[in-house]
Design a protein around this nucleic acid. Structure first.
Lengths: 219, 219
DNA sequence: CCCTTTGTGTAGCACGCGCTACATATTGCT
DNA sequence: AGCAATATGTAGCGCGTGCTACACAAAGGG
């Protein structure tokens, strides 16, 4: 079987460019003209390489999950305690949202909100991924109970939905032009929802009624 | 000046229908065919009445603010104390998101996330309205400090951005198919970020270290 | 009644979208 | 060299979009 003419561009780099565009403008906002222009190829090459715009988006999403979701997974799967783990999750999302191409935010959260007729499958795909995210956070919180980081009475589903809502809020606020300080403020405030194991090493100095000064555990 | 042929449909009802469609599917998702079909008129009548799709969206947004935003304003401007006020704000958003036409959520939050080229003005309009919402919440919190509901050291900007982020999270989660319980859980959890004035009437019975059992102030 | 004014319905325009037919170019195999 | 196989560039198709030209219908004023 002969080999045929070789591709004139790097498929991985092309996919990277496509991902950035989808990330920056969403599925419908990233038009084929923009995609091919960003890659530097013509439509037939795009279709020969990826099949269709929808297929390219699916592949771009997988790349996104591999590259961005890995740190996301590290935050949850690492050897941090539960509070540090959730905190790392939120912190990384802030970093991601601020460093995002275009207007900012997370591709998983903002890639497609309102689907035009015919694109419902992609919207549902993103939704299912987000739900999977809730499940992963919940699993991490369950581990927190097993490790003694959280009281056994903790409502894990409630916290999991809450923190994933915070992730989405961070992305939306980033799109709205929020500053790093504002996003950090959201993180710090959200962390107040997480109950503490028993007693803090050095805290509760003057105000034992409130848990902590917000921002005391920043950095 | 003669009167001309009278309009064959009720403009207010037509605008209402348009608003529901924009709300359910977003600006780009609500196509002119759907709009005219929902109203029961033909394109020329639509353009004679509203001018353009963009103008219709702006007017629909104003209607949305008048009808939905009024209760929103009531929650902030009523004679409730600060905690009750914020709580009412979140509760109403949950109710709104669940009762929304189509997939659920708030029109202000989800009406347009990713703008196609040419529609940036509408996206910015929505963003500015959301920012205005942050300002209003902040004003309410300032009043809370003046009323003694919040300690003077409270970081008001932080809380305002946080709670408005929660509003957006509620809308997004509703679009993702969240149940009423899940949305209520987000509300209850978010309320933990609000510091209490001094001492609760009847709380802190057994666990003075933690603030309260989540959900104790529900209903 | 005629005129002006305004709304309606039919039909379709201009444009941008995702996508592709076709001829040509570049490779490996024999 | 000749052939099969694959990629590329040019050009443009089919469709759906927001929007509108045009002729006709329905009102009031003289």
């Amino acid at each position: 079987m002969p080999g045929g003419r070789p591709r004139s561009f790097d498929r991985e780099i092309a996919l990277q460019r496509a991902m950035e565009l989808f990330w920056a403008r969403g599925y419908e906002g990233a038009q084929l003209t923009d995609l091919t222009a960003a890659i530097g190829i013509n439509p037939p090459s795009f279709y020969a390489a990826f099949g269709s715009k929808e297929a390219a988006f699916r592949e771009a999403l997988e790349l996104y999950e591999r590259k961005m979701g890995s740190r996301w997974g590290q935050a949850l799967a690492g050897d941090l305690d539960t509070r540090q783990s959730i905190r790392a999750l939120l912190d990384y999302t802030v970093e991601l949202a601020l460093g995002a191409p275009g207007s900012g935010g997370c591709m998983m959260a903002l890639g497609m909100i309102n689907a035009m007729p015919g694109h419902e499958a992609l919207r549902d795909l993103l939704r299912d991924r987000r739900r999977e995210g809730v499940r992963q956070v919940r699993n991490r919180l369950e581990k927190g109970v097993r490790d003694g980081d959280l009281p056994p009475s903790t409502d894990l589903s409630r916290l999991a939905v809450f923190f994933c809502g915070i992730l989405q809020a961070i992305s939306l606020q980033a799109r709205d032009g929020a500053t790093r300080k504002e996003l950090d403020d959201i993180v710090v405030t959200a962390m107040m929802a997480l109950p503490e194991p028993h007693i803090q090493p050095r805290s509760a100095k003057a105000t034992p009624a409130r848990r902590r000064k917000p921002g005391a555990d920043a950095g």
